[in-house]
C-alpha cells in the first residue's frame, strides 16, 4: 500500500505539476462554462420537460469533453514513460505491474473527477436559485456525477490500454479515442437510430452508455449497466496488465 500511495502521489504530481494538465483542465472548464451558459439560456427561453442534468447529458458538450479528455489525460501514462526510458527504472524497482497500473488508473480517474467537478458545483449553486426540483434536483446531480465517474473509469481504462500499447503519445491518444468513439457510436445507435427489433438491437441496448447516462441524469441508478461498466473497466485494466507483462513473456 505504501508503494501504491507513493506511485499515486507521483501520478497526481504529473497531472497537476506539468503544463499539459493545466491545459486540459482549462480547455475542459472553458467547454463546461460554455455548456452551462447554454443550458441556463435554454432553461430561460425554451419550455422543456427535462431536468437540468438531463439537458446537460443530451448536449453535445458532454460527449465532446468526455471523448476528448480521457485520451488526453491517459495518453501520457505509459507511452511517455516508455519513450523517455523511465519505464525501465520504474519496472526494475521493487513494485509490481498491478501497483503501477492501478496508480496510473486511479491518478487519471482522480484528474477526470476534478475536471468534471465544477459542472456539478455549478448545478448545486443553481439549485439555490431555482427552487423547483423538477428542473434541478440534488439526487439527479449526484447520480449524474456518479455516472460520469463510472463512464469515465471505462474511458480511462481504455486510455491506459492504448497508452500501454505504444511509445508514442499521439498513437496512444488515437487508439483510445477510436475505441472510445466506437463505444459512443454504439450508444448513439440505440438513442437516435430507431433499432429494428431483434437480437442486435437488444445487445446494443444492453451495452448502451447513453441509456445508462440518461437514467442517471433522471436520478435512477440501475445495477445492470453499473455491473457492465465495472466489468468493462476491469476487462480493459486486465488487458493493460497483460500488455505490461508482455515484455516478460518468454
Amino acid at each position: 500500500m505504501k508503494v501504491f500511495k507513493t506511485l499515486l502521489r507521483r501520478e497526481l504530481g504529473v497531472c497537476f505539476g506539468v503544463l499539459n494538465g493545466y491545459v486540459i483542465v482549462s480547455a475542459a472548464l472553458f467547454l463546461v462554462g460554455v455548456c452551462f451558459y447554454d443550458l441556463v439560456y435554454r432553461l430561460n427561453n425554451q419550455p422543456t420537460d427535462m431536468t437540468l442534468t438531463e439537458m446537460f447529458f443530451f448536449s453535445w458538450y458532454f460527449w465532446l469533453i468526455l471523448l476528448l479528455s480521457a485520451p488526453l489525460i491517459t495518453m501520457r501514462t505509459f507511452a511517455h514513460e516508455k519513450s523517455t526510458g523511465t519505464y525501465e527504472i520504474l519496472m526494475t524497482a521493487p513494485v509490481n505491474d498491478i501497483q503501477v497500473l492501478m496508480s496510473k488508473f486511479c491518478g487519471a480517474l482522480f484528474f477526470h473527477a476534478i475536471i468534471w467537478l465544477p459542472v456539478f458545483i455549478s448545478m448545486l449553486l443553481l439549485r439555490f436559485y431555482i427552487n423547483n426540483p423538477l428542473v434541478v434536483n440534488i439526487t439527479s446531480i449526484i447520480t449524474t456525477y456518479f455516472a460520469v465517474l463510472m463512464v469515465g473509469a471505462l474511458y480511462i481504462s481504455i486510455g491506459c490500454f492504448g497508452s500501454a500499447l505504444t511509445r508514442s503519445q499521439i498513437v496512444a491518444g488515437m487508439v483510445s479515442f477510436t475505441l472510445g468513439m466506437g463505444i459512443f457510436m454504439l450508444s448513439v445507435n440505440v438513442l437516435f437510430v430507431v433499432p429494428d427489433p431483434g437480437p442486435i438491437s437488444l445487445i446494443l441496448a444492453k451495452v448502451s452508455l447513453a441509456d445508462y447516462m440518461r437514467d442517471c441524469s433522471r436520478g435512477i441508478l440501475d445495477s445492470r449497466p453499473f455491473i457492465f461498466l465495472v466489468t468493462s473497466t476491469f476487462l480493459f485494466l486486465f488487458l493493460t496488465w497483460r500488455v505490461l507483462e508482455w515484455r516478460r513473456w518468454r
Binding site: 507521483r10 504530481g13 505539476g17 506539468v18 523517455t84 526510458g85 523511465t86 525501465e88 527504472i89 526494475t92
Partner: peptide, 14 residues
C-alpha cells in the same frame, strides 16, 4: 539491486 540503465532515464520534472 540498484540499476542504472543505458542513457540514464530520469524524471526531468522532479
Amino acid at each position: 539491486i540498484g540499476y542504472m540503465p543505458e542513457n540514464n532515464p530520469l524524471y526531468y520534472d522532479m
